[in-house]
């Protein structure tokens, strides 16, 4: 669906070009996003996230390499099919009303039944009550919800959200998650790209996460397999005198964890072995309080990817 082949983007005005002072925002980025994927884009400031998004919208052209969406150059794709987009900085004519803005975007998008669509989107995003207010008088949160409503107007196959939770209160952050999940369910082939500094939010909506740093792909983290059998587990047992020794007997590499006493990080090669060892532990009279796969959060993986440094991995 979306393909970037060794894409490099350099910024340089005429003076900088003369002085060879180019700024390389993206450096040989190669990426393939299959239909149906939700891709998170994370990275520190200046990593190239915004540049990547602007390339995908066709607002920028790559200095080298090729960007394609559905086999078309991005601008041609957008002009033909449109992209549902929520920009980091929402800029809408301040004199337009909320309803007028949605009608305008709908008509520009060549949609049928614009009024009904606009009404539905306003209701969905909870801005029906401010439908006749001017954009200039909207709060940051309502403006963000208006931007999301316009992205939901048309039946687009690609959605790009740039810091979508910016300005939203916790309730609307949660509702946005539902809206996005619903949008994906309507057509399983739809592609969602979410750029955000909020790693927890990205982890909740994305299948894969692209870690960018200094314009290079540091890592692509696959979150889809996170619920599969984990190699490490957190085991907590009822405090008892012989419990730690019994745990170490069952799990020779058990490591006591910080925090509550009688909690250990244990490892097992597979689920069968894990169950056998836990059964043995229980047979020894140890009461198991909890056993849970060790969950490595996106935040930990993100920091690990950044700390790894060295050559970026496509």
């Amino acid at each position: 669906m979306i393909s970037l082949q060794e894409v490099t983007k350099e910024y340089a005005g005429p003076l900088r070009r003369a002085a060879s002072g180019r700024v390389r925002a993206l450096d040989e980025v190669t990426l393939h996003v299959a239909p149906g994927t939700a891709l998170g884009i994370v990275g520190p400031n200046g990593a190239g996230k915004s540049t990547l998004i602007r390339l995908l919208l066709g607002y920028l052209r790559p200095s080298r390499g090729r960007v394609e969406i559905d086999g078309l150059p991005p601008r041609r794709y957008v002009e033909r099919h449109g992209i549902a987009y929520v920009s980091e900085l929402v800029a809408i004519h301040p004199t337009w009303t909320v309803r007028g803005a949605l009608h305008t975007f709908g008509r520009l998008g060549g949609l049928q039944g614009v009024e009904a669509r606009a009404r539905a989107c306003m209701e969905r995003m909870g801005i029906g009550g401010v439908a006749d207010r001017r954009v200039s008088s909207l709060s940051k949160g309502n403006l963000q919800r208006l931007a999301i409503a316009q992205a939901l107007l048309g039946p687009r196959r690609v959605m790009i959200l740039d810091e979508p939770t910016s300005g939203l209160d916790p309730e609307w952050v949660m509702r946005l998650r539902e809206v996005v999940a619903e949008w994906r369910r309507e057509d399983p082939l739809r592609v969602l790209l979410v750029a955000s500094h909020n790693l927890d939010e990205v982890e909740r909506v994305a299948d894969r996460v692209l870690v960018l740093e200094q314009g290079r792909v540091r890592e692509v983290i696959d979150l889809r397999g996170r619920s599969e059998a984990a190699a490490a587990y957190r085991l907590e047992v009822e405090p008892a005198e012989g419990a730690p020794a019994a745990v170490r007997a069952a799990f020779p590499d058990a490591v006591p964890e910080d925090g509550p006493p009688f909690a250990f990080r244990v490892q097992a090669p597979d689920l069968g072995e894990l169950n056998r060892r836990v059964a043995g532990l229980m047979a020894d009279g140890v009461l198991v309080r909890s056993l849970a796969p060790e969950r490595v959060s996106l935040e930990e993986r993100y920091h690990a990817a950044r700390a790894a440094g060295g050559e970026a991995r496509p």
């Binding site: 919208l57 607002y59 957008v78 002009e79 033909r80 099919h81 449109g82 992209i83 549902a84 987009y85 920009s87 900085l89 929402v90 800029a91 809408i92 004519h93 975007f105 520009l108 998008g109 060549g110 931007a147 316009q150 048309g154």
Partner: peptide
């Protein structure tokens, strides 16, 4: 920056 949302429509 008004163009940002305008030209993500198919036009």
């Amino acid at each position: 920056g008004y163009y940002r949302l305008t030209f993500t429509q198919p036009i």
